[in-house]
Every structure is written in structure tokens, then in C-alpha cells.
Design a protein around this nucleic acid. Sequence first.
DNA 1: GGCACGGCACAACCACCGGTTGTCGCTAGG
DNA 2: CCTAGCGACAACCGGTGGTTGTGCCGTGCC
Lengths: 312, 312
Amino acid sequence: MRTFLAVVDSGRFRQAADELAITQQAVSKRIAALEKELGVRLLTRTPRGAEVTVDGQAFLPHARALLDAEARAIASVRPAERALRVDVIGRRLAPAALLRAFHRAFPEFELDVVTLFDSEAAVAALRAGTIDASFRAVTMPGLRLPVGVEAVRVLDEPLQLLTGPAHALAGARVVTPERLVGHRIWIPGIVSGTEWAAYYADLAVAFGLTIEVTGPDFGTEALFDTVGDSPELATFVGGRTRLVWPEGHDLRRVDVHGPTPVYPHSLLWAVDNPHPALAALRSHLAHSGPTAVGTDIWTPAWARPRETRQAP
Amino acid sequence: MRTFLAVVDSGRFRQAADELAITQQAVSKRIAALEKELGVRLLTRTPRGAEVTVDGQAFLPHARALLDAEARAIASVRPAERALRVDVIGRRLAPAALLRAFHRAFPEFELDVVTLFDSEAAVAALRAGTIDASFRAVTMPGLRLPVGVEAVRVLDEPLQLLTGPAHALAGARVVTPERLVGHRIWIPGIVSGTEWAAYYADLAVAFGLTIEVTGPDFGTEALFDTVGDSPELATFVGGRTRLVWPEGHDLRRVDVHGPTPVYPHSLLWAVDNPHPALAALRSHLAHSGPTAVGTDIWTPAWARPRETRQAP
DNA sequence: GGCACGGCACAACCACCGGTTGTCGCTAGG
DNA sequence: CCTAGCGACAACCGGTGGTTGTGCCGTGCC
């Protein structure tokens, strides 16, 4: 493809060969091989050089796109020039939405999204420079931020109850946590030892809820399927995200107030990380701010004290 | 990359090898080679298979994008599955804008845009099935549509005068063609024998204008440069397109009325072409219709009679 | 605790891909 | 008519990328 582009740009096989530092015969072979593989002529050979055929014209932008994709792929792992690499905890949650908003506001900054196993791995990766930023609940028990890693709380995400139409609470527009006592709340795919496990454990204890975090995660589709068909199972979803569920489902989102359980998302980063997009992301989040959902909120005890000094 | 994706998807080298119909050792070599070339580890080898590293996670979507690009590139030249291939006469003119509008309205249809030398080549390509549609001025002298190729007039594009700030007509908001007599109008890059050459020749004769279609085409930037700096040179541009000119220029677009010279764009296609996107394009254009710019218009004599039966 | 098993890596080998040099045929221009 | 410049073809050859064979290592079962 590179050879094809070189020939198109220069208009001559020989010149393309010079640019690629190979012989004209090699260019000829490469083009012939490409044409053979595609089954079409891409170039018409004239005594004065080469011209692109109609097929070649149609192929051209795709060839360029492919080389662009190659360059981006390589850049994505080159430490010096790589895109801002952000760790988000589940792509269905508010941090992912925050990231998308940032991307819309600053499309000039490339983003790569990864998901690490837990906060500890995230902090280690931040220190190692493997990632540039991480959305986490930094204050989870046992996690102490090492020097060089800082954090700000960026969003308190209210939890919503998700039920099927046959559920006892399906008709409610809002419920209190007390109303949930005795109902089965099922959140599969929670790995023990992670911040989510700690969060739901605390939540269950605080209000006497029945939260099952067991079972393998077959994906949200399967979860929605099960919840949608069940009159007694419900689950929690982040209240700040758009959900897409399979057609034909009639799932209900029910606000939880009095108090509102919120999940305390923070942004973590390494202070010595000079990535320009990191500064932009931080200031963007500082402006959007830790959206207030009211004063009557609940967070785990470990999230309640002032968790960290504010970033400058 | 394909091997990397196979390993990530299956989680095992051996399984990936089976899918790719090669040996496990070959997979190992491929991954090692990729990692060596990139200079990072993409996978961590565990006793139970392979897991992606952070770098691998960041690399992953780019790898998929690259293979997607490859598939699209190949599809673009496979007759059976290729995107709708449309020939437009210059990407700065109204047909290109129409195509973009169609693409916005129907993003599910892929488009490939090509530019053929002249109407004759376009008609031949339509008959051969090399292209699916063509925006042309079909009625140009000497061009007779062969059986199997049809056309509808889709847009009458009014011409505008483009001048620099020092030009005598720069202050006018609108001029008549008569006012242009004696002024030099320069349109480089017109290849003789094409429909544009015929159009401007007729226009010059009809109003006694001085239209120079000589000189090589150094691109619109060079044209705008020259026109912008000259007190006597002007040029014509299509009135239905956004122009982007280099910063710092102070170019003026002047409407021409009394009558308004319009360029009669038509859509051509082969009746036996079953491409679904072609039907969509035709109906889309039928609805947007041959935008009326008023009754006081001028077209070359060859465009005046009813040019073709309407499509069903 | 020992041993089989299944994971991936390393080594040796070999075919063939993709480059090279050498040469030809063709067209346009002097 | 000859020459200059284009790309294509043929013969050759080295290295890439596959193969088979084997080793090492962690896990799990008896």
C-alpha cells in the first residue's frame, strides 16, 4: 500500500522506488502483487509513468486510511508520542461519559481507554508511567496514595435502581434505601478486593440491604435480560449514564433518595507526568466540577473525610 | 496484528494458532516479532494462557481499526460488495456538496468518490460498471447517452464572481453579465474537450466576455492567491459551495444576476445497476430537487431543451 | 510429593517470499 | 531512425516466516 501511494504521489515507478530506497523492479513487483491480490488494475502504465485507474482512485483514500491507522497504532505504544491513556472502571459508568465529554470538547487530544484490575494496579501503573490518569474511588480502605500520585474527586454518581416491569418497585419514581430492604439486588461480575466490592459491602451493611455480588459476569445484556424478566431481582446502575438495552425490554430506572447513595469517582494522576492532554483533562474536570446531587447523600465511611488536597 | 487479536480474543496462543491454521510456535514468533518491533510487551504469558498488558489494551482498538481499514480497502475494489462509487467533477463544486448531504442523510451507505477525465469516460465507466453514478453536464455537445445510461438534472448551480479587494467590481454585491465585459476572467486548469471548456466557451460568446481558460492548474490556493492580489483578474466559482481560502486573504464573492449563469449538473447512472445505495441516492436527489434559482437564468444552448426523460 | 498435563519459548531446519541484477519491449521526441 | 526513459520479465539469492522437535515451568490431580 505504501508503495502504491508512493507511485500515485510521484506518478512514476522509478521515482517511487527512489523514495522507498528500493529498485524500480521491486516496485513493479509490489504493485503487481497488490493488483493480483485485489484482482483489479490500480494503475495504468503509460510511457510517461503511471496513472491511477478508477479502481485505484476508489482504493486510494482507503490505502491512506490504512497507513494512518498503522501510524496511530504504533504511536499508541510509543511512550514519547502516545495518546493520553486513561483507565476507567467500566465503560458504562459516569467516568466514561466524562471522558467522552472531554473528547468532544478537545477532539485534538487523542485518547486511549484501558481498564485495570484494581486501584492498586492503577496507582502502580500511574507511577510507572504506563497510564496517565485513572478514574477510581481513591479512598477505598487500605489504599494510600504514594507520594507523586494525586487525586481530586470529580463526580459523585448517584445510583439508580434498575428493575423489570413486573417488579414490586417498578412503578415507583423514587424510593428510599429503606424501601429496598428485603428485595434482592444482584450485581454480577464484581471482583472481590476491588473498590466496587468494598462499596457495595458498605452499602449493604449501612441499610441492611441484600446485595448479591456473586456470579460470573455474562455482560450487561444478560444482566438486563435477567432483571427484565424477573419480578424480584433488581440491580444498580450509574445514574449519570445513558444505557442502551436490547429492544423489546421494558426496564425501569428508579431514583434512590433519602439519602442518595453516590459513588465517589476521583481522578488520579502522577504529578510528574508532563503529558499536555493531562493538564487539559484536569482543568476540564475542574470546571465541570464534582456535580452536586444535593446534600442528602450517602457514601461509604472511607469516602467521607476530605479525601485529598485539591489540585492547584 | 490479526494474530494479536486472535490471541486476545481466545486468551491462548494455541487456540489462536488453531483459528489461524498455523502452529502455536508460529503464533509465538509473530507476537514476539510484533512486540519487538513496537518495543513493548503486549501480552503477559501466564500458566493459563495470555493476558493483555496495559500497552496491549491501548493498542487493541487501533489494531482492530487497522484490520477494519484493510477490510474496507479490499471491499472498495471488490465489485460485488464495494461501496457506491460516484464520479464528481471537482470536489469544490455543488455535486460534492450534494454527495456530502446524502452521506449525512444516509451514513449507512459507504461512498467512494472518484473523478474521471471527461463525460465520455464517465459514460463508458458507467456502462462498464466501474462506477455507479456520475455528476456531469450530460447535454454537452456531442455527447449522446447510449441506451442503458440515464440522467436527471439535479442542480442548477449559479456562478459567482470571485475577486480580490482591489478589483473594480469588489464592492458590488451583484453584477450583470454585461458588466463583466472587458474584465479578464481567468479559470486555469480547464482541459479542452471537456464539458467545462464547452460551457465557458458558450458563456464567453453569449455575453462577449473575456474568459481565459488557459494555463496549468496549480490548485485553488494558487488561483486564489493570484486573484486576491490582482486588481484586474477575477474568476468564477460555484455559488453553492463553501470555499476555504488561505487566511489573510480578502476575497469577495459577487453574485451574477440578469441573467444568472448556471451550470446544469445532472446525475447519470446505468439502468441495470442494482446497487442499493444508487436507488437511495437517486431518490434523495429527487427529493432535494433541481434547486430553482429563479427564472432568469442562462445556460448553454445545449442545456436548454428538455435534456432527458425523467427517471421513474 | 510426585507426576502428568497443558501452557509458551527456544532451536534447528527448510521453503518461498521479496528483494537484487541484467535485460527487453515499448513509446515519444529530436 | 535513433535515443532516452518508462515499466515488465527472467534469473538469482538471502532472509523472513513457517515447520517439527524439544525444553521449561506452573498447576492440579492422585
